[in-house]
């Protein structure tokens, strides 16, 4: 079907979302909970855009295209929503997200450098028991990407969203950590995480501090 994104004519297939159309047109739409390897989730509300004929901004990732739709990705109201979403997310973190993370990059592109709101931040809570995967729970923004990667990409069903509101976070197994869960150590969760709430242990240990990657373990002595 034919539609318009920021004044450009775009042809999309049946079933395409507004986000698909925007990306096809080369337009940038901020996203936090979206990963193209997963079904659209529509949780973060960062991807709001204006669509002709709707009174309020709509989420691009879960809105299906219609013939003749006119989409504005630069709509000021939508951008205000996105900035507010990112500011609220940042307000709960004890420290700024690392520059390489998707959250930091989205914030930078939206021109959000801090948060207007102060208040409670998540307590630092690290779990380094797995040799490759590390939890930094204080960085979790409950986007659900890790849980969906585990379910929809790998199929290990090891991660669960836990808690409500400010307490919302992610857990492996029944909170027992990766090693005691059905985790197969594929790392899809760390790969998709936009904040490093789940990240690579080897990067935490080594190069993130500026040094070289850590040594390899020695081969076990023969018995």
């Amino acid at each position: 079907m034919q539609l318009t994104v920021d004044g450009l004519q775009v042809q999309v297939a049946d079933g395409a979302t507004v986000l698909d159309a925007a990306r096809q047109a080369g337009a940038w739409v901020p996203t936090l909970c979206f990963d193209e390897r997963q079904a659209p989730f529509g949780a973060c509300r960062a991807c709001m855009v204006a669509v002709d004929g709707t009174p309020k901004p709509v989420p691009a990732c879960t809105t299906l295209c219609r013939e003749g739709m006119v989409i504005d990705t630069n709509d000021p109201a939508s951008r205000r929503v996105a900035r507010t979403v990112v500011e609220l997310v940042l307000s709960e973190l004890p420290s700024a997200p690392a520059p390489h993370t998707e959250l930091a990059q989205v914030a930078a592109r939206l021109g959000v450098s801090g948060s207007r709101w102060s208040g409670a931040v998540h307590p630092v809570d690290h779990d380094l028991r797995h040799p490759y995967l590390a939890f930094q729970h204080e960085l979790c923004i409950s986007c659900g990407r890790c849980v969906r990667a585990c379910d929809e990409v790998q199929g290990a069903f090891a991660l669960t969203a836990v808690g409500r509101g400010f307490e919302a976070n992610v857990a492996a197994g029944i909170g027992s950590g990766f090693l005691e869960s059905s985790c197969v150590s594929c790392g899809a969760c760390a790969d998709t995480c936009p904040t490093d709430a789940i990240t690579e242990r080897l990067l935490l240990d080594g190069s993130i501090n500026g040094g070289p990657p850590p040594e390899a373990p020695r081969l076990r002595e023969r018995r």
Partner: peptide, 27 residues
């Protein structure tokens, strides 16, 4: 990084793996 493999991630356009890999390939 500094002549060593610091990390490996799956290529999003890999025809067989489509942005995914396992603990051997990745870690």
């Amino acid at each position: 990084r500094q002549g060593r493999i610091a990390s490996i991630s799956p290529a999003a356009d890999g025809p067989a793996n489509r942005g995914h890999t396992c603990l051997k390939g990745r870690f």
